[in-house]
Design a protein around this nucleic acid. Structure first.
Lengths: 206, 206
DNA sequence: GAATGATGTGACTGCCTGGTCACATGGGAG
DNA sequence: CTCCCATGTGACCAGGCAGTCACATCATTC
């Protein structure tokens, strides 16, 4: 919800300001991010920022929203395969693609990560909404997998979503800081997925 | 590393100050926690706090350390069963006990949660150390399970640890805010564990 | 009662924050 | 050249922060 002043700005300047805000919100969670620092780095007057946005939170929401659109379009290629690819392959593709996104646009990723575990009351509502959407998408996949017999029908679907979500988040968060060999990490992703696919229990009995 | 002045304080007062600091560090991550707020609530002079601790970080480290000892002793009963209980049951007990801890001492839990995803460089080192210890303990359990044939020997142990850690953390974090029926959540924990144990793939083939 | 050293105190400093506002600048219309 | 309105500006405000320090209080010792 930027003001019209911001939207009337030349694209170049608009992107410049967006990038500077992005950097700051990637480095710090919302509460600790400094608007003063942003305008300093962007080399614009503080008053100008208040011509463009209502306040700090307005700017933040704009950045988060833009980042989410960006990420969604990056992941779209995976969602487009839903009908053609089997459940486990699709999840593998999804995790790999998410990982590539985080690698390719680390600041964008960090902004979403910071947003995701934000404590701000006003933001929590939007986070929950976002979560619910993803949950529904995932459960759709699961049910499709059940129908075609790939997935055990006894599986508790809420629990399955929970596991995949927790693991997916951790897969990205924990390995972004270290510079992991990309290929190695994608292999690790598959190791992790294989555990979710097969579980740990010994198959000797069968 | 409190100063001797703090250690010489009557136990009652010491606990009072500890509790007030605990509340604040439970409510906010380190950077956003306010020392001024702590001394106001504790009803002591700010100068006094600096008689007891070197600085804010010193106080924080003391609180975190105390909390970790507290939690460890609470979970000790589970670790004591290592020799007598089978892997999957032990993990179930561990998750349940961790959950009960978070329920029973929510502030203590929140302090550890805040610490766990702290961004402070100086603290990261200690976090990694803590993580490594837990990882080793878990891999020990896994190897024991492999030896006695309960766990598939093909399982990638690093990946297994990763999955259990991610899921365990999420199991607590995500359900603490809502007041979930305790029994229901312990059932959910077992649903989640059953997925890790058996995976999702259909067993029809066997 | 005097002296001593440990403990308690809160006004104060310097710094940083988000947000404001009276003013300066610029470029197009008449 | 003048008017006008959108845009740009940075000194300034009130409030919060961690940390300091000169001083007050207290308990012990002699």
């Amino acid at each position: 919800m930027p003001k019209s002043t911001f939207l009337n700005l030349p694209v170049e300047k608009r992107q410049h300001i967006f990038n500077c805000a992005l950097q700051e919100f990637a480095r710090h969670p919302y509460e600790q991010a400094s608007l003063t620092e942003i305008v300093n780095i962007a080399d614009i007057a503080k008053g100008s920022m208040y011509q463009y946005f209502e306040d700090k939170k307005d700017l933040y929401k704009y950045v988060v929203q833009t980042v989410y659109q960006h990420k969604r379009s990056f992941l779209q290629s995976v969602w487009d395969m839903t009908d053609r690819v089997e459940f486990f392959s699709l999840v593998s593709l999804y995790y790999r693609q998410s990982w590539r996104y985080a690698k390719q646009f680390p600041e964008y990723h960090k902004v979403t990560a910071n947003f995701w575990d934000s404590r701000d009351e006003a933001l929590r509502a939007e986070i929950l909404r976002e979560k619910q959407i993803r949950s529904m998408e995932f459960v759709d996949l699961l049910q499709h997998g059940s129908r075609i017999g790939v997935i055990d029908t006894d599986v508790d679907q809420a629990a399955a979503w929970f596991v995949y979500h927790a693991v997916g988040k951790a897969l990205i968060d924990n390995f972004l800081e270290q510079d992991v060999n990309a290929g190695a990490h994608e292999a690790f992703i598959d190791s992790v997925l294989s555990i979710l696919e097969q579980g740990l229990r010994s198959r000797k009995g069968y």
